[in-house]
Amino acid sequence: MLHNELYKLAAIDIGSNAVRLLVYNIIETDEDPVFKKSALVRVPIRLGKDVFDQGPISKENQLRLCDAMKAFTLLMKVHGVDHYRACATSAMREAENGRGVCGLVKAETGVAIEIIDGKEEAQIIAATDLHELIERDKSYLYVDVGGGSTEFTIFSQGRLLVSRSFKIGTVRLLRDKVDKTLWKEVETWIKTQTADLSKLSIIGSGGNINKLHKMSGRKVGQPLSILWLNAQYQFLKSMGYKDRIKILGLNPDRADVIIPATRIFLSAAKWSGAKKIHVPKIGLADGIIKNLYHSLKTK
């Protein structure tokens, strides 16, 4: 239960490509509470590589995950975090030993991990603070690209219309684990849901679109054009993996997944008719914070 004017909440996002700890300062005022990001730590534990190739999470990555949770626990202590919530997504929910790994982490570190399904993941992402970006007379396709899945949400006239999660993610694509029929299913869904919507833009979230926006040199709040994104896609594909690290300065665990991520965004734009992508730098972890805050306030 929350009872201070200033407190800290944390979200742990255990994804297929990386594991993140996000800390927020929340300041309660006479009006709406103010949410401010305080710290973000990202660890490249690629759980999806284990799961999508073999089925279970390897012993090595189980130990790495435990070490990450121990480190996150200490960081939350140092930051003075009042409450946290840890959520695992696509890789953990598909892992043959997912629940066993959660039990191991709880026993070794005290961190309780919730495995959330695709529907809840989409709902949490939709709970992020988008009111500053969404204009009531326009429509938006919110695309959150992860390592194991992509969540699509349609907003129109300021309202959430529908959400859907598909098992198309960057790590899954790298491992060649996405069938052509699934791409067709996504295409049909997007075209059907956006057919009657005009003035539609994409809102992109996830580490890859954030990195692409930074690489573009555009100012915060300035959208990416699909024209630029397509040119950047061709440029990235023309370079080797090592050159994307050496010349572009990408992290090793970003230099490979950024290409399939860009493909997903470009496909969503083609099928929805969108001409630009807004990049507000919000995602699942931000939604976890908002959900945690509201659940604590109602207790």
Rank of each mutant, 00 (worst) to 15 (best):
R99C: 05
Y24N: 14
K59Q: 10
V78E: 15
Y84S: 07
D32L: 07
K106H: 10
C87F: 08
H79N: 13
E60S: 14
A39E: 05
L40M: 14
R46N: 10
A95V: 03
H79I: 09
H83T: 09
G98W: 03
D117T: 01
I124P: 00
A88V: 05
Y84T: 06
A126K: 10
V111M: 04
I116G: 01
V23Y: 04
I134N: 05
I125N: 12
E60D: 12
I125D: 06
G48L: 01
L22V: 12
P44N: 01
E108F: 06
E108M: 14
G55T: 00
I125C: 02
N25H: 11
D117V: 01
E114H: 04
A127D: 12
I45C: 01
R93C: 12
N25Y: 02
K70C: 13
K49L: 10
D53E: 14
N97C: 06
Y24H: 15
V23S: 07
S58A: 07
E120N: 12
R46H: 00
G48S: 04
G100T: 03
V34Q: 15
E94L: 13
L47H: 10
A91F: 13
M69V: 05
E94T: 12
A122M: 11
F72L: 10
V51N: 03
D53I: 07
M76E: 06
I124G: 05
Y24D: 04
R99P: 04
D30R: 11
R99D: 07
A95N: 08
N25W: 09
G48V: 00
N61W: 08
L21N: 02
A122H: 12
D53P: 03
E94F: 14
T109D: 07
L130Q: 07
K49E: 15
D67T: 05
E28R: 11
Q62W: 08
K77I: 06
D129Q: 14
T128W: 07
S58K: 08
G110D: 03
T73F: 10
Y24T: 02
P33N: 08
K36V: 15
K36C: 14
A71S: 11
E108I: 02
T89W: 06
E135N: 14
E108Y: 10
G118A: 05
T29Q: 10
M92I: 01
E121H: 08
L21W: 05
K106R: 14
E31K: 03
R93I: 02
F52A: 11
D82G: 04
D30Y: 12
P44Q: 03
H79M: 11
D82R: 09
Q54K: 09
L22C: 08
F52Y: 09
I113M: 04
C66M: 11
F35E: 11
I113D: 04
E135R: 15
R85E: 05
A126M: 02
K70D: 12
C102P: 02
E132M: 15
L65Y: 05
D117G: 04
L75C: 06
I125V: 07
A112K: 11
Q62P: 06
A127M: 06
D32E: 08
I57S: 05
L63F: 11
G98C: 00
V78I: 15
D117S: 01
V78Q: 15
V51E: 05
E108C: 11
R85K: 08
D117H: 00
E121W: 00
G55V: 01
F52C: 02
Q62I: 07
C66Y: 03
V101K: 13
R93L: 09
L75S: 13
